[in-house]
Design a protein around this nucleic acid. Structure first.
Length: 426
RNA sequence: GUCCCCAUCGUCUAGCCUGGCCUAGGACAUCAGAUUUUCAUUCUGACGACUGGGGUUCGAAUCCCCAUGGGGACGCCA
């Protein structure tokens, strides 16, 4: 039975890199019908905060990563670590230095381990100095607690970032000293930021919830993250999570660091928005607008449904929908300056708009087909292209040159609003 | 500095293990065309890479070595 773990330290929020590590663990567990377990590495009392834990768990849930079994907190296991450390002292494999307990490293030895991604990695113990196991304050060090916990939790595969490669020989020594069974290791490449160097708080947004805030769908983020250091083959890129579970194998993860590319994430997000059925997408848009405090008492679900249908093809992030909401539910419109200049302030603009207005007023039936028909007819009468009517109308009723199909927009807005907005430019 | 890891288009990657099918495939981005009432949609096309040098071999992106470049680790942080 495969048992993997994700072991965050609640000293900060969950960022892209850790989320990807968690995802690879989760995918590996699901693919093998194994368990995905969470261990909270909160040995640093000063820096560990409850709110960070909440944020980390919330982020994992948002990304569909459910975990098995109860959370393990290292802070509750100090006496266990101490017992193991004292045993090592008894065997003379470690020694006391004041209240601290330190592991004795024998020189001139080779420590080798098998990595599922990198193959054999070998290091001389000459590179490793004696290792602190228990600190003077009675808390265990990372490398020590990690080994004991992984063994006690019967973790079979340790999938973690490349940056832990140099910790591994130290841990292997401890496994051997305590006669604990060695798990399999897989060190996955780090995610790098644009300027080179690992993703960090300094380089752009890294908290998972920030991506939520920017209007990304968790489905899209999971999909994108899975493609950082791994590829399913057959040139496939858009894969639902079930498909990822089916195809993922940690052996196929590559060794090279991957640079995070926002453009591609945005593109994947747009694909998810475009292809998501309206029933599924709608609640997500509503929740997003609520979170953003954009949704107000003018909201009308039936109308919003029509809006989303009309716009989803060209929506890249949920954030795009904020300005769209304002067009359909706001009182005052924000006009794009260049657009007004081009379409509403020309000498003949007033004439065009008032003719359009008259045409809309004269409509027996108000729906997109009738409106279109009227516009085409009017263009014919005016001996001009329909586009010459359409562009000014679009700017007048939405403030923008871009958007969904004009006649869809007009139908959704309703005759009164359209007339009122056109009236401003006659 | 020492040790470790890595090296295919600007970016993510396929191919590498098991050398020939690679005049190196796909995607994002960029640019150009087409369609559309607009484009932030869609479709076409263009641009664009095996880091360098040595081997091994009839043959190397693929195997080996060196150099270079990038990343990581060297905490009583995790």
């Amino acid at each position: 039975m495969v048992r993997v773990r994700f072991a965050p330290s609640p000293t900060g929020y969950l960022h892209i890199g850790s989320a990807r590590t968690a995802l690879f663990n989760w995918l590996y567990a699901k693919h093998n019908n194994g368990k995905f377990i969470l261990r909270i590495e909160d040995t640093d009392k000063e820096r560990s905060k409850e709110e960070f834990l909440e944020e980390i768990l919330g982020s994992l849930k948002w990304l569909f990563m459910d975990w098995d079994e109860e959370l393990t907190f290292q802070s509750k296991r100090f006496d266990i670590y101490k017992k193991y450390a004292e045993e090592l002292v008894k065997q003379n494999l470690a020694y006391m230095e004041g209240p601290a307990i330190i592991f004795r490293v024998e020189k001139e030895k080779k420590i080798a381990f098998e990595d599922m991604i990198h193959g054999t990695i070998e290091v001389s113990t000459n590179e490793i100095k004696d290792q602190v196991l228990m600190k003077s304050d009675g808390t265990p060090t990372y490398n020590f607690a990690c080994v004991i916990d992984d063994a006690m939790m019967k973790i079979t595969h340790i999938i973690r970032g490349d940056d832990h490669i140099s910790n591994t020989p130290k841990q292997v020594m401890l496994y051997e000293a305590m006669c604990l069974p060695l798990p399999k290791f897989a060190h996955i490449p780090l995610i790098l930021s644009k300027g080179g160097g690992r993703m960090s708080k300094r380089h752009g947004a890294t908290s998972i919830f920030e991506y939520k805030n920017m209007g990304f769908l968790p489905e899209a983020l999971v999909n994108y993250l899975s493609l950082m250091g791994w590829a399913p083959g057959n040139d496939r890129e858009i894969l639902p999570i079930e498909e990822l579970v089916k195809l993922f194998d940690v052996k196929d993860v590559n060794k090279t660091g991957a640079t995070f590319d926002m453009d591609k994430l945005v593109w994947i997000n747009s694909q998810y928005i475009k292809d998501m059925p309206i029933e599924k997408l709608l609640p997500k848009t509503v929740e997003y607008l609520k979170d953003k405090k954009v949704l107000d008492d003018k909201f009308d679900e039936a109308r919003w449904t029509e809006v989303v249908k009309a716009y989803k093809e060209r929506t890249r992030t949920l954030e795009d929908l904020i300005s769209v909401y304002k067009i359909f539910f706001g009182d005052t419109l924000e006009y794009d300056e260049k657009a007004t200049e081009k379409y509403l302030k020309k000498p003949n603009s007033k004439d065009i708009i008032s003719k359009c207005k008259t045409a809309v007023e004269g409509l027996a039936k108000y729906d997109k087909h009738s409106i279109e028909e009227a516009y085409r007819k009017l263009a014919e009468e005016m001996k001009c292209k329909a586009a010459e009517l359409i562009h000014p109308t679009r700017v007048a009723i939405s403030g923008k040159t871009v958007g969904a199909g004009l006649f869809d927009m007009m139908e959704i807005l309703g005759r009164n609003t359209v007339l009122q907005r056109l009236g401003k430019f006659c």
